[in-house]
């Protein structure tokens, strides 16, 4: 049964709204099972696609007998194949995600639950994973698997010290399928995020980066002589925060976000910056809709 946190992750009202949505990809991938979305592959469905000449060995059930009667030649009816979609939600569970109110991780979990639910509703293969990896990250399909997703999400805690590149490497090795990947992260990796994103692009994935920052990162209110301790590597930075320094920080942040946006845009990665205190339904139904992840 879903726990209280699960309820908090996904409210019934939100579920009701999400049921009407589906995940959209700009690319078409081959799924393993028949799903609820049309494939450009021809297959078995009720939707006519084309004709082709019969060749021996073809399934006789798909011969258009009416056409044979008229033309005296055998043609086979082709139908649109309906396939399932791989949807990966990769969450950055590093300690830096534990900041904010609600925490960035909590917001990421809600977002993953919402998107996963949308995927499950459309019989997509949904995989929830973290950069450091979780115990059972097997693909789930079908609405009934929602509780498992929620259970998985519950287990995620912000104590994963894995660097982004290592996490992406591990993820790529474990998951060979193609599809949509949504990376929810704060991009605060001192080794850089660029190599990790490049690796995901190389997998021909439809990549969405949701850049999640807490309000105190977006608009810090620090002042005075401080010894800043990095939550991830415990690195210490001594700083005297003045209004001038705060102004410079905001410039640096704008530059950082701008660089990330530019990097993503050049590589057809969909980038979205969101504060952690923004409501998930707004993110999904408004912002992600605008960016074409759901419709």
């Amino acid at each position: 049964m879903p726990s209280a946190e699960s309820n908090a992750l996904l409210s019934p009202e939100l579920m009701a709204r999400l049921e009407r949505l589906e995940l959209v990809t700009r690319k078409v991938f081959r799924g393993h099972l028949k799903g609820e979305r049309r494939s450009n592959r021809k297959g078995e469905s009720v939707e006519f696609a084309d004709y082709r000449s019969y060749v021996p060995g073809d399934d006789l059930r798909f011969i258009d007998w009416n056409l044979y009667a008229r033309l005296d030649r055998l043609y086979l009816k082709l139908f649109q194949e309906e396939e399932d979609l791989h949807f990966y939600c990769l969450i950055d569970a590093s300690p830096s995600m534990s900041f904010g109110n609600p925490t960035k991780l909590q917001c990421a979990k809600k977002l993953a639950a919402a998107l996963g639910f949308v995927g499950l509703c459309r019989s997509d293969r949904v995989v929830i994973d973290t950069l450091g990896g979780i115990k059972s990250s097997a693909p789930m399909r079908g609405r009934a698997q929602l509780w498992r997703i929620l259970e998985q999400l519950e287990q995620i805690e912000a104590n994963d010290p894995t660097h982004m590149l290592d996490g992406v490497k591990r993820f790529s090795l474990r998951n060979s399928g193609k599809g949509i990947i949504v990376l929810i992260t704060d991009l605060m990796d001192k080794t850089g995020y660029e190599a990790a994103l490049r690796m995901l692009i190389a997998k021909q994935m439809d990549l969405f980066v949701i850049h999640m920052l807490s309000p105190e990162e977006l608009d810090p209110t620090l002042l005075g002589d401080l010894r800043l301790i990095d939550s991830e590597d415990r690195d210490e930075t001594e700083i005297t925060v003045s209004r001038a320094v705060l102004k410079k920080y905001r410039q640096t942040l704008d530059q950082f976000v701008s660089q990330a946006k530019q990097f993503c845009a050049r590589r057809s990665i969909t980038y979205m910056l969101t504060p952690s205190d923004r409501a998930v339904d707004v993110i999904v139904t408004q912002y992600l809709r605008e960016r074409g992840l759901v419709q």
């Binding site: 300690p95 830096s96 995600m97 534990s98 900041f99 960035k104 704060d186 605060m188 990796d189 001192k190 807490s214 105190e216 990162e217 620090l222 005075g224 002589d225 401080l226 010894r227 800043l228 301790i229 990095d230 939550s231 991830e232 690195d235 210490e236 930075t237 001594e238 700083i239 005297t240 320094v245 410079k248 920080y249 640096t252 942040l253 950082f256």
Partner: peptide, 23 residues
Amino acid sequence: KLRRAPLVVPSTYLWMRTIEDLH
């Protein structure tokens, strides 16, 4: 060093970049 108040932040990444000219 000055006796500075310790404060845990998500990441010092941006702060370091902010003060790298001075620090």
